[in-house]
Write a protein that binds this DNA or RNA. Structure first.
Lengths: 144, 144
DNA sequence: TTCACTATTGAGATTGAGTCTCAAAGAAGT
DNA sequence: ACTTCTTTGAGACTCAATCTCAATAGTGAA
C-alpha cells in the first residue's frame, strides 16, 4: 500500500515513531471518501476490534493534519471532520441545510481573487475556509 | 435609539416578549464593532451591574441571529463570535494566525462567482462562510 | 389595575468535543 | 538485549454551549 509507506516516511522524517495505532487510524481515514469526524473514526476502529484509545485517535489525527496527509474541515456543526488529502485536488464544500449532503466544488477564478484580495489587505494566505450553505434541488431531499 | 425600536418590533412580530434582559444584550452587542464571543458579552454585562444570566445571554443571541439582527461568525477558535448586522454591509474576514487580528473584506466578483458555482451544482445559497487565514505583514505583529 | 395565560428567567446540572495526566508499554538505534 | 525516549490508554478534566424546572414577569383582555 502506497499510503503506508507515506506514513512511515513522514513519521521517520519528523522523529516520530511508527506504531500500529497510527497505522490503523490512517488506514481508517483512507478507507472512505466521506467527511468523517473523530468520534466516527474511533467507533469504526472499535467495531473491527482494533483497540485504539480515543486520545490516540485525536492525537494521531493531529499529526496527520500537521503533516498534510489529512485536511480538517469545519462544516459548522460543532465538530471537526476529516478527509484524506493524498492525491486529492484542492476543493471547497457546499452543504445542504436540509439533508446535510456535502458536495465539493473548485473554482480557479475564486482562488485567484482570494489571493489578490489578501495581497491587497497586506496578508499572506496560509489556508482558507470557503463553504456555501443552502438548499439542494435534489428530489430526495426533504425540501419542496 | 433606532435599534431599540427594531428589537421591540421584531419580538412583537414573532410573539416573543420584550424584556429588559433582551434589551441589555442587544445594547451590548450594538456598543462595539468588535467580533466578540458570548462569554465576553456576558462578562461586560456583569461588569456594569447588569444581571443577565449566562443562559439568557445565549438564548437572546440565538434570537438575534435568527432574526438577522446579528451575524454568527465561526473564526475557527472553538467559539462563536458575533457582530451587529444592522446597517452593516456584507463582508467576509481575514484572520492573522500570529496576532489574531481580524480584517474585513468584500469582493463583488467572488460573491457573483459563488452564486454561479452554487447554481451549477444545483444549490440555492442561504449563507456562506469565507475566511482567509494567514499572516499579516504588519510590523507590530509577532512575525518576522 | 387586576387577572390569567404563557413566555422568560436564573442557578446550577448536564452535554459533548476535545485535551491532559501519568504510570505502564513499546519503538528504534546500538 | 539494552537503553533511551516516545507513545499509549483510562479516565479525569476543560470549556463552550444547552438543558431543567421552579420562580418570575410580560401582555392582552376585561
Amino acid at each position: 500500500m502506497n499510503e503506508t509507506k507515506k506514513l512511515r516516511e513522514i513519521l521517520h522524517q519528523k522523529n516520530l515513531r511508527y506504531t500500529p495505532q497510527r497505522q490503523e487510524v490512517w488506514d481508517e481515514i483512507c478507507a472512505t471518501k466521506e467527511h468523517r469526524d473523530a468520534e466516527d473514526i474511533y467507533n469504526s476502529l472499535r467495531k473491527r476490534q482494533t483497540n485504539v484509545s480515543r486520545a490516540t485517535v485525536y492525537r494521531t489525527i493531529d499529526i496527520l493534519v500537521k503533516n498534510n496527509l489529512v485536511r480538517r474541515l469545519d462544516l459548522g456543526d460543532g465538530r471537526s471532520r476529516f478527509e484524506n488529502k493524498i492525491g486529492i485536488a484542492h476543493h471547497d464544500h457546499i452543504v445542504c441545510l436540509d439533508c446535510r449532503k456535502i458536495v465539493e466544488f473548485m473554482n480557479e477564478k475564486i482562488e485567484e481573487l482570494q489571493e489578490q484580495v489578501a495581497k491587497e489587505m497586506g496578508f499572506e494566505i496560509v489556508r482558507h475556509v470557503h463553504q456555501l450553505f443552502g438548499r439542494c434541488l435534489d428530489e430526495k431531499c426533504p425540501n419542496k
